[in-house]
Simulated assay, not measured.
Amino acid sequence: MDLFSPSWAALRAAVAGLSDEDFSRPSGCRGWLVRDLVCHLVIDAQDVLITLATPADAEPTRDAAGYWEVGAVPDGEDPLDALTVRLAAAYGEPWLLAFHLDDVGSAAGRAAALADPSARVSTRDQVLTAGDYLSAYVLEWTLHHLDLVAHLPHAPRPPAEGLAGSRALLERIAGAPFPASFSDENALLVGTGRRSPTAAEAAALGELGAGLPLVLG
């Protein structure tokens, strides 16, 4: 949970530093421009606010790793993905989208800082502690920060501690550690299918490679 605030702040700062032209460049999310990704982040921030305001009395059914469900590679037919693209285009001016992310994102950050880590919250028919829920979102922020800067070499990259924490969580989801030869960033990129492993990386992965990529949803 301690990694949530710095990871989220770094991602929002990276968006705030983009030029208007950057919003029209490709992102690391297949089929999405940077503006589409930023619109998705607005929706993510709303989800954080909604979940933290949805208390639960039941015992937790998932932890931070269990929050994520591993599915198939997207086929581009998801209606929610298509809605995100249309919504992003509806903003018209990039500054409006950036302003909305800063507004809602700041509120989500404040709500997270005020949350009791042991409190139980409900989302997607699951019950988690607030601490586990926010820890799960560190992986979301870090992966999307990598998506944001995939074609923007001038933009700041995710903080090292967020990369390390996200790698550790992804390894829990995978059920095995990535090779020590992999940097945290490469473990995340290869592990989630954001790029294919090189021949040397594939050899180092061994049996773990057969279960990749881990498409998280």
Rank of each mutant, 00 (worst) to 15 (best):
A119W: 01
A108D: 08
S166G: 09
H154M: 12
G28L: 08
G211N: 08
L146Y: 02
G191C: 08
V215F: 01
Y67T: 01
E201H: 05
P197W: 11
R62A: 14
E185K: 10
L3C: 05
L128N: 01
H144S: 04
A136D: 09
D63Q: 03
V215M: 04
L87F: 05
A203I: 05
E93R: 13
V15L: 06
T123D: 07
R12L: 15
G31E: 08
A14D: 13
G162F: 00
A72T: 15
G109H: 02
R167A: 01
P159S: 01
V34Q: 02
T123R: 14
H40P: 13
L114V: 13
G76R: 05
R62N: 09
G92W: 07
S196C: 00
P159C: 11
V38T: 06
D57L: 13
T142F: 07
D22E: 10
F182D: 12
E93C: 02
G211I: 06
L97F: 04
S19C: 03
G17T: 06
L205T: 07
L205E: 05
S7M: 09
D36Y: 01
P158N: 11
E171S: 05
V34W: 03
V34E: 04
G92A: 10
D75Q: 10
S106Y: 00
H144W: 09
L11H: 11
L37Q: 08
A72I: 13
V15Y: 01
A56I: 08
S118Q: 15
D78K: 03
P55W: 07
T123K: 08
L83A: 15
T123N: 10
